[in-house]
Amino acid sequence: MTQAARKKRPLTLEYLIQTRSKRSGTRIHSTGRTERLRDDGAWERLTRLTPAALAELTTAVDASGYFDLPATIAADDGPSGTDLHWTIDLDGRAHEVRAQLGSHMHPALQILNDLVQRLVAEALDAAAGE
């Protein structure tokens, strides 16, 4: 990781996943505070990402080309059962992407999806003292 990447940069990320009947989501604040969207639509605190995790996420957002993605991405092979709604604000630059999930997730979103899941899991693991 470069020195520039380690430098704290303001990042907020919100990732909503919506099926026909359920909306779930993860929200990460620039402080590392991480929230989960409850079934009743309220956000609840889940865990806190470390500065290193935030830096890794920031680097991944840069590398993924997220800010070059179109605002809407249709499923590649028919109707979608799951819609993804990303909102990322990095260094004051915000971008929203609404993507229908087909058989394959857009590669840039797949990278971010997997990373957010892993970082949240690691933070929960660490918080559990394990």
Binding site: T26, R36, L37
Partner: peptide, 8 residues
Amino acid sequence: ASLNDAAT
């Protein structure tokens, strides 16, 4: 992805 919340 629709099972992310369950994993969390």
